[in-house]
């Protein structure tokens, strides 16, 4: 395994690793928009490789280039330059997609069809024999919790139900690689847990999952490795340990204000002066501090007559890492 620094640097990261399931090599996409034919560089030299059996998260703010990359991988958009391969074959050959399942962002389906009919249709596109197709449809509807709506038209489905049907259609051919664009969007907490479990289940069965999400907590929970894309370029890539391990620990400090404590405004100013950000709810003060300033913050709290009731060290979260990186990228 490469060390964190090597893998975090996309320039030194080889895309065509031996036996990679999905590999992008120096992928570029330029769009021409408007009457003035203004050029927009949506993806700039994206290079990464997804290994067999891993869950690879693709993360970035809106407009970063996530969906464009996925669409190039799925043959919906042609690249301006660079290449995308799946199982070592160019994605220009539609045959390669017989081993791939894809869920687009905000999936749209023929709403005049029933859940059964739509899955049967997609099964036919994969040339799955009828008997196998029928068996698979029932299994999938059961798996995504939609058996009760088997013969209902999609027209009456909620967003969450459509998302579940979308997941089911992406798995109809029992693909080796599943590409999911925002699979957790539109789902309630129970639905999100179901889909997370389903993704775990896919990994247990040896499948490879490449997915994007805005829900950073889910990416952190599920993924083996992540790539962070911003302004069309991959800015970080690696396992979560590689990305977050070198960032130092954060400490959550909780303290209670008493009758003799200094006033809130003064307290906040003093804490902020130490580079930490407090939040106050009632008499409880919660502060997230970096390890290096912990002793100074604790001294300040004691001097200010607050009772420190909890101090918990933890790794920086992906969200904190992402916000910090996005802020740095945008010069915030």
């Amino acid at each position: 395994m490469q060390d964190a620094n090597t893998e975090s640097n996309p320039a030194e990261n080889p895309s065509h690793e031996e036996g990679s399931v999905l590999a992008c090599d120096q992928l570029h996409k330029e769009f021409t928009i408007g009457l003035r034919l203004k050029r927009v560089h949506a993806v700039r030299g994206v290079t990464f490789a997804v290994k067999p059996g891993e869950i690879f998260g693709y993360l970035g703010p809106n407009g970063a280039g996530k969906t464009t990359t996925m669409k190039m991988a799925m043959g919906l958009i042609g690249s301006t330059s660079g290449s995308v391969t799946m199982f070592g074959q160019s994605v220009d050959d539609p045959k390669v997609r017989s081993r791939v399942g894809y869920l687009p962002e905000h999936p749209y389906f023929y709403d005049y069809l029933t859940a059964f009919e739509i899955l049967d249709f997609y099964g036919r596109l994969y040339s799955i024999p009828k008997s196998m197709r029928l068996k698979r449809i029932d299994e999938l509807l059961e798996m995504v919790g939609m058996s009760h709506a088997r013969n209902r038209r999609l027209r009456g489905f909620s967003k969450g139900m459509l998302q579940r049907v979308g997941i089911a259609q992406s798995l109809i051919a029992d693909p080796d690689l599943v590409v999911l664009d925002e699979p957790l969007g539109g789902l309630d907490p129970i639905g999100r847990k179901d889909i997370r479990d389903l993704i775990y289940n896919l990994r247990e069965r040896g499948k490879t999952v490449f997915f994007s999400s805005h829900i950073l907590h889910d990416i952190e929970t599920i993924c083996d490795r992540v790539a962070i894309i911003n302004h069309g370029q991959i800015v970080h890539m690696g396992s979560l340990d590689q990305l977050l391990g070198g960032e130092g620990k954060l400490v959550d400090v909780m303290a209670l204000q008493g009758p003799n404590s200094v006033d809130e405004k003064t307290l906040c100013q003093k804490i902020e002066a130490l580079g930490a950000s407090p939040s106050i709810a009632g008499s409880t003060v919660t502060i997230v501090v970096e390890e290096s300033v912990l002793s100074s913050v604790l001294s300040l709290l004691l001097e200010s007559k607050l009772n420190v009731i909890d101090v918990t060290a933890r790794r920086i979260s992906l969200e904190e890492f992402f916000m910090r990186e996005a802020g740095a990228e945008d010069g915030v």
């Binding site: 799925m74 919906l76 539609p94 390669v96 997609r97 894809y102 687009p104």
Partner: peptide, 14 residues
């Protein structure tokens, strides 16, 4: 327009 094509072209369909 309805983006139903996404789930067709992304299958092994030339």
């Amino acid at each position: 327009d309805k983006k139903t094509i996404y789930t067709i072209i992304s299958k092994p369909v030339p």
